[in-house]
Design a protein around this nucleic acid. Structure first.
Length: 769
DNA sequence: AGACGCTCATTTTTT
DNA sequence: ATGAGCGTCT
């Protein structure tokens, strides 16, 4: 066949692409061209004559889907590529659910509740049930419900599941089952589905409607799934059902990169693939095109410590490269400073661009310090995660209006804006309204449509305010199918008064809110432009809403964000690659997360997470750990992560003081002064061959105890003779103070903990009166 | 009803 | 450090 693209693949990639007879599993090591195989395979299928609308390709993120679609478009043309069913599980099945909604008791315009909405709903339910919200923590209940849904356990099945009930009883939360039940009822009353519902309800749809299942089985002649290691049971079953007849399915993944079990992903899906699809062919992609040999080998030596895995030999034929540099620092602030220094150096002496560099961390909270350090050195950066555009208050407010207009039963949207801007409808009224709705088993909106019929116990004034609110929404709702999304959203913003306060108040916050709302309107406008029919923007507001709730901030890349250092969690970095990667906060109690050290299984997932982090790097990888870190309002002391020792030492460049064979990593409190010198000397060492780093780091940590810049013996901040408290050594008496290399030092007698010489800069001391 | 300011507890990862 | 929830004051 004439398909010249095949020549651009190596042998194993090519075999994986060309096999289209039955089920296949492609085990793709990190950087081995997994996406390449998927895109070429789809292009190949199209070349063999398969219609694009017969191909279903499921990805993990919108971004992955979009990029893949673009690449395919360049190979086979945009006109063909546009008809592919390509997207995330959530977006594809929300689309299918919309067209089949009536079959499962929802309407086409059902709302998608994001996790903030579910959380809020759970809170209200707990409150209404008069339960103690400290016992029934929303986080716990939410994860419990999510777990159940991901495993297709309905409230009825939950009741019947003795294990779950026992577990809840043992955890003293026996009423979780009831909350779950009510939660489902409420979602349905609100005509809303949460994220998990999109998968659960798809299963329900297929199970209860065999003809519908058949219909989609026939539509999807070939199914491809990316990141199969991260699928959960609900996703597994959807795919299995759809592929049941022909088993024309190809899944791609890497068990070594399975990092989402906390939200229900089941690594067994990929490990057991050949048991599900008996004639499955397995292809392994083992050549890594991304990273240097050192990085690949280091990552291999790490993942080798996991018992659960599909054995494979990932190798690189790129240059050997530099060892992974381990950076040992004192505090999180220093960590930021040093990383920023290295980044400056990479940029100015090695011609790295900011976009070539990423800082990866375990938790979002760590971004703060890094951010400050980068800002101080004027290094442009972009933080992913944290609160995204769509989580900003003003955006959520506008979207809530839109949601309510499209689906008046949406209780969470209603609660959000019924009194915003203030219109004299307070908590008391809202509670009455919801209580009344529950009493009659209808939505809150339904009560509003006929307050007399439902005997809503409010006075005439309040009733009037409610009626006004209702008619405002009604007016918008009437335009829902006649106005396009942009026009309607625009008039909602203008007339509802969501941002009217920003017109009188000219504070910077107000202006920024206003800008954000304009930004949102712009996005809606672009959405309409992208869906022109006969040159007319006909996209409806509900169309926009159905997409917007599944967007994340990674999907809103702006041109101005191009050449910037990337800051993100390791989770968010999956699938990406950078020339240089800094993995920071590699400490016990942080990475691995203390929540994940209970079982070997969880620990292995954390190790895989570290593996993912390392394998993002193409050329250079740095790993840092701090000896103390400011967390939750206080300083914690920490030891290097156990995972560092899992990497074969030959691929590492250890800091001079922490050669594990001589001194245990973590013995450090004996002599801070020499530590300080070592830390400085590590700067004069080249990062890698031939490049010298500027030797003197500038002072970056403000003295925790003094505001002055110059330190002299006169203004030293702790007087001799006072008693101080140290978070580790306890209470001690200051015997002597001095200045060493411009830093205040104190000799303190901690009694039985001994005599310590501490730099005030590092030791957070509290002076006792 | 609404605004303000206090105290309290809470800290993983996110389609 | 930060935010959410609560009580008090206007």
């Amino acid at each position: 066949m004439d398909f010249p693209f095949l020549n651009e693949l190596n042998d194993s990639q090519r075999r994986a692409v060309e096999y289209t007879d039955g089920a296949s599993l492609v085990i793709a090591g990190a950087g081995s061209g997994k996406t390449r195989v998927l895109t070429y395979k789809i292009a190949y299928l199209l070349k063999t004559g398969m219609a694009p609308s017969s191909i279903l390709a499921l990805t993990f993120t919108n971004k992955a889907a979009r990029e893949m679609k673009e690449r395919i478009a360049t190979m086979v043309g945009e006109k063909t590529a546009r008809y592919l069913w390509m997207g995330t599980f959530h977006s594809i099945f929300s689309r299918i659910l919309r067209s089949e909604a009536e079959l499962i008791g929802y309407s086409k315009n059902y709302t998608i509740y994001d996790s903030a909405d579910s959380k809020s709903l759970i809170k209200s339910i707990v409150k209404e049930m008069k339960l103690d919200d400290k016992t029934y923590k929303h986080g716990f209940v939410q994860s419990r419900i999510s777990y159940a849904k991901n495993n297709l356990i309905t409230p009825e099945a939950y009741l019947a599941n003795t294990d779950l009930i026992k577990a809840d009883n043992a955890s003293r939360v026996p009423l979780t089952k009831d909350i779950y039940k009510i939660y489902c009822t409420r979602c349905k009353q609100a005509d809303a589905m949460d994220f998990d519902d999109l998968l659960l309800q798809t299963n329900v749809l297929f199970k209860n409607n065999p003809t519908i299942l058949q219909k989609y089985q026939q539509i999807f002649r070939y199914i491809l799934v990316d990141e199969y290691q991260d699928t959960n049971f609900a996703q597994y079953l959807i795919v299995k059902k759809l592929a049941e007849q022909h088993e024309k399915i190809c899944v791609v993944g890497d068990d070594a990169q399975s990092i989402y079990s906390f939200r229900g992903a089941n690594i067994d899906n990929i490990l057991q693939f050949k048991n599900t699809y008996h004639n499955a062919q397995i292809f392994k992609l083992e050549r890594n095109y991304r990273s240097t040999q050192t990085i690949v080998n280091a990552a291999n030596s790490l993942i080798d410590k996991n018992a659960q895995q599909i054995r494979k030999t990932v190798f690189s034929e790129k240059e050997t490269g530099n060892p992974i540099k381990i950076l040992s620092v004192f505090t999180d602030f220093e960590e930021g400073f040093i990383v920023a220094n290295y980044i400056s150096d990479l940029r100015f002496t090695s011609n790295y661009l900011c976009q070539d560099i990423a800082i990866l961390y375990r938790t979002n909270a760590q971004s703060r310090v890094m951010e400050e350090a980068l800002r101080k050195q004027s290094i442009p950066y972009r933080i992913y995660g944290g609160l995204s555009f769509y989580q900003r208050k003003e955006i959520k407010d506008v979207i809530a209006y839109c949601r309510l207009v499209c689906n008046p039963n949406d209780e969470e949207a209603l609660k959000r804006i019924i009194n915003f801007p203030a219109r004299g409808i307070g908590d008391t009224t809202i509670n009455k309204l919801i209580e009344c709705a529950q009493l009659h088993a209808v939505s809150a909106w339904e009560v509003l449509t006929d307050m007399l019929k439902y005997n809503l116990p409010v006075n005439a004034g309040t009733a009037n305010k409610l009626a006004q609110f209702r008619s405002m929404i009604d007016v918008f709702a009437e335009q829902i199918s006649t106005q396009n999304a942009y026009d309607l959203a625009n008039s909602i913003v203008k007339t509802s008064g969501v941002i009217s306060d920003t017109f009188t108040d000219h504070s910077p916050e107000s202006m920024s809110r206003q800008e954000n709302v304009q930004e949102l309107l712009k996005a809606i406008h672009e959405f309409c432009e992208s869906k022109l029919v006969d040159g007319e923007p006909t996209a409806l507001l509900s169309d926009f809403l159905s997409e917007v709730s599944l967007l994340t901030d990674q999907d809103t890349d702006k041109e101005s964000d191009k050449d910037k250092v990337t800051l993100m969690t390791v989770h968010a970095a999956k699938g990406l690659e950078f020339k240089a990667v800094f993995i920071v906060g590699m400490e016990e109690e942080l990475f691995p997360s203390p929540f994940c050290t209970q079982s070997e299984r969880e620990l292995e997932e954390e190790r895989r997470l570290f593996y993912v982090a390392i394998t993002r790097a193409e050329e250079l990888c740095f790993i840092s750990f701090a000896k103390s870190r400011f967390r939750n309002g206080k300083t914690n002391f920490s030891n290097p992560s156990r995972f560092i020792k899992d990497i074969d030492e030959q691929y590492l460049e250890m800091p001079p003081e922490a050669k594990p064979k001589q001194t245990r990593i973590g013995d450090w409190d004996d002599d801070l002064e020499t530590e300080r010198n070592r830390f400085q000397s590590s700067f004069s060492k080249p990062i890698f061959r031939g490049n010298n780093i500027p030797a003197t780091p500038k002072r970056m940590v403000k003295l925790s105890n003094s505001g002055g810049d110059k330190i002299t013996t006169e203004n030293i901040s702790i007087p001799i003779g006072v008693y101080v408290k140290h978070s580790v050594f306890g209470i001690g008496k200051v015997l002597e103070t001095s200045i060493v290399n411009g830093n205040e030092k104190a000799d303190i007698d901690f009694g039985e903990k001994g005599l310590k010489s501490l730099l005030l800069k590092f030791a957070k001391l509290e002076v006792l009166k």
